[in-house]
Design a protein around this nucleic acid. Structure first.
Length: 259
DNA sequence: ATGACAATCAGAGATTGA
């Protein structure tokens, strides 16, 4: 089973890119972030025509996540538990019914800039809720993963210019510590488990020729629960997509599971 | 220190992103 995460930066602006990618790369499951669309306006029919089930959790203008799957989905839930007053659409879950069922969670973790301020407070509070949800998922003792745009640069080697991110919400010690707390519950960060060292990125800013200079950061991640980590066959970043016309500023990250 | 770039909503320019 091949699963991809992809922050598409606007599903309506990116629909041609998305359809071409789905046709060529054929993920069994795709978890999308920043659909920037309400559910009613999501272009679901053209995606269903390619054989996908479509589940969305959108909002007006910003954020929004979705799951596309060629395998049946069960028990779809929307919204990260822990704060009923949170109206931002950043979390969706479903069980993918392959040979081995896998609980998949798609997430768009808050950016958190500027620091300090309410947006950073929201990011850290959201990560606390994420940790609580992660603990609950682990207690099921069945294969699960959490993937998406974490807006976390885990280590200096995950940025071309780490010094430029030192005081940024994506790389501050408090951010990295909150991310490690979740990992330390027993999750495997799939890419890092497969590929050592730096120079691997999943986001390049549109500005200042960042792609041409390979001035990127690695912020899109797969966290696998233990039962899922045992199924891991491979993990890679599809960086070629960044070179196409009208690209997202993120590229897809993939895992292949023996499931 | 700032802006560069892009998408959205709205129908100009502010807001958000990372």
């Amino acid at each position: 089973m091949k699963i991809a995460t992809f922050n598409i930066n606007g599903v309506k602006a990116r629909i041609e890119t998305l359809l071409k990618w789905l046709e060529e790369s054929r993920p069994d499951v795709a978890l999308l972030q920043e659909i920037k669309s309400v559910d009613e306006n999501f272009p679901r029919e053209v995606i269903e025509d390619l054989g996908y089930t479509v589940e969305t959790h959108g909002q007006k203008g910003f954020n929004g996540v979705a799951i596309l799957s060629r395998l049946p989905l069960e028990d779809v839930t929307r919204g990260l538990p822990g704060d009923d007053s949170d109206e931002q659409a950043r979390w969706i879950e479903a069980t993918v019914m392959g040979d081995i069922p896998v609980r998949v969670c798609g997430l768009y973790l808050p950016n958190g800039n500027p620091v300090p301020g309410p947006k950073y407070d929201y990011k850290l509070a959201w990560m606390k809720r994420l940790k609580a949800r992660a603990e609950a998922l682990l207690s099921e003792e069945t294969p699960c993963l959490m993937t998406g745009d974490y807006n976390v640069i885990p280590q200096d080697e995950d940025a071309k210019r780490p010094e430029a991110w030192q005081k940024d919400a994506l790389a501050l010690p408090e951010t990295r510590s909150a991310f490690r707390e979740i990992l330390n519950l027993g999750f495997t960060e799939a890419f890092r488990a497969r590929v050592p060292g730096g120079g691997h990125y999943s986001f390049w800013d549109y500005q200042a020729g960042a792609w041409d200079r390979n001035d990127g950061i690695r912020i899109d991640h797969f966290l696998l629960g233990p039962e899922c980590a045992d199924l891991l066959k491979d993990c890679w970043i599809e960086s070629e997509l960044r070179a196409r016309t009208k690209p997202s500023d993120h590229v897809p990250v993939w895992v292949e599971l023996d499931a």
